[in-house]
Design a protein around this nucleic acid. Structure first.
Lengths: 262, 262
DNA sequence: CGTTCGATTGAGGAAGATCAATTAATGTGG
DNA sequence: CCACATTAATTGATCTTCCTCAATCGAACG
């Protein structure tokens, strides 16, 4: 059994869902520990070399705003944030979610002004770094430039993943994948994933995933019915995720039209 | 009438669609001329300071491949390219289109290997730049670093626009917006936009826009029926765009449910 | 000249949007 | 602390959009 799993892993190295869920948990534990440590290291590096201005923000407050003159990049030390763009004709769209260690404001570099709003979804700490000061510091410290480019690269790669999910997954799978990504993000920051507090309304989730709030609600109900997720005792805002692997499995099940139970 | 339009423009300053199309054309001509010149300047700068290896690629050939070890960034001197990602479970997705002056390979910086394929859609010239050589050059020349960061920033901002289109526009509008973006991209490179050769099949366009090839075909037929686009005499691959502003107007018409002719 | 691939168009069906009603959670002022 | 108002979530019924399946047509190519 173990050897079979090992063979599978060798054949499909990029596959995110090994046969044995416990195996995945153990593997991921190591990966997440390293990721969590790396985020901490980077924050420490930035803190010591740049002495960023620290700012506490509360739910609903803006880190920066569309149209505002670009001059700073922001790094999240804690909290959860959403990136919202507003089109000229009034369409509003959540285009990103940000966690501890993530950078904000890259979109401003090219245009000279930010093209979106960055909104706190709960209380958090934001570090402000002047872009020109960062560039100066990068001249001395190559490590800093590497960190910056990695952050931008990761954002580009992740946006492409989002595009893929939007284009290829049916609604139920998109919701499951959304929860999986949220749980993964928490895990990579050393946080619990068995009970997560989505700080977004169904409408916000739906907006982010390109569907209506009713469809989100139905998808969540279906996930709960299939025991892939649960709801916390108080309210249905907090989601219980017994197994992140089960979420991945649900996504795959949506894609294979073969064995659809009832 | 004119004063009414002027009032509207004042109220909605960010609106991309002035009342008088000729006005838009004249304005855009200036913007595009500057954009075209800027692209040429950047290519010249890169060429002189980095002496990149130049490589000719033909339709269907890969610039780089998913999984390949990261070491280079690529700059397009000519041609049209698509970025394709393949998920572990076999879903294939066109996640980007690239033109002269665009950079390829940013996604590789974070992971250490590219996460997608870059495929030429016709004959073009690609410049290869070693990433570490680029960083070294950036240490001496601040201008180079600015150019690099602007390119990454633009990619991030554009990915968000794509996300917004996917999430908020109905199929017909998405196709119109796709054509508008393509035309805009050509204009910014000093190329004609009244007759454009889409080097993609309906299936590829549909994949990129998150819809089926039949829906793309029907959308194009509808656009042609409404005289927003036309088809070149030979075949229906090449699209005639008498007015880019008319494409924008069509997108807006799809969004306002009010005056739907028949 | 037939073969193949891409595009178009139609008919039917399914996923998801819209509309509407109900319930649950949250907050507010008395 | 409660009655009330408000906002969020759920669920059902219906309708629209888009997908799927299928047939036809056209262009390119050996």
């Amino acid at each position: 059994m173990l050897s079979h799993a090992a063979t599978l892993a060798a054949v499909i190295p990029a596959c995110g869902m090994p046969a044995d869920p416990r195996c995945a948990t153990n593997l991921d534990a190591g990966v997440n520990l390293r990721a969590s440590q790396r985020i901490a290291d980077i924050l420490k590096l930035l803190s010591t070399t740049l002495a960023p201005q620290r700012r506490l923000v509360h739910a609903g407050e803006l880190v920066y705003q569309a149209g505002e003159h670009f001059g700073n990049l922001y790094i999240l030390n804690s909290g959860f944030f959403k990136i919202v763009t507003l089109s000229p004709d009034g369409r509003e769209q959540v285009v990103g979610l940000k966690f501890r260690g993530d950078w904000l404001g890259f979109d401003g570099i090219a245009h000279g002004s930010y093209s979106c709003d960055a909104v706190a979804m709960d209380t958090g700490e934001v570090w402000t770094i002047r872009y020109d000061a960062l560039l100066s510091a990068c001249a001395d410290q190559r490590e800093l430039l590497t960190v910056l480019h990695e952050a931008m690269s990761r954002e580009i790669a992740h946006d492409r993943d989002s595009l893929m999910s939007l284009c290829t997954l049916p609604a139920d799978a998109r919701v499951a994948e959304f929860l999986r990504y949220w749980a993964e993000s928490l895990a990579k920051r050393g946080l619990r994933t068995d009970e997560i507090a989505l700080r977004m309304t169904r409408a916000e989730i739906g907006n982010y995933l390109g569907m209506t709030l009713e469809t989100v609600s139905r998808a969540l109900s279906r996930l709960a019915r299939d025991k892939v997720i649960g709801f916390a005792s108080k309210g249905r805002r907090d989601v219980l995720i017994p197994s992140v692997a089960a979420l991945s499995a649900f996504v795959q099940r949506c894609l294979s039209p073969a064995p659809m139970l009832q």
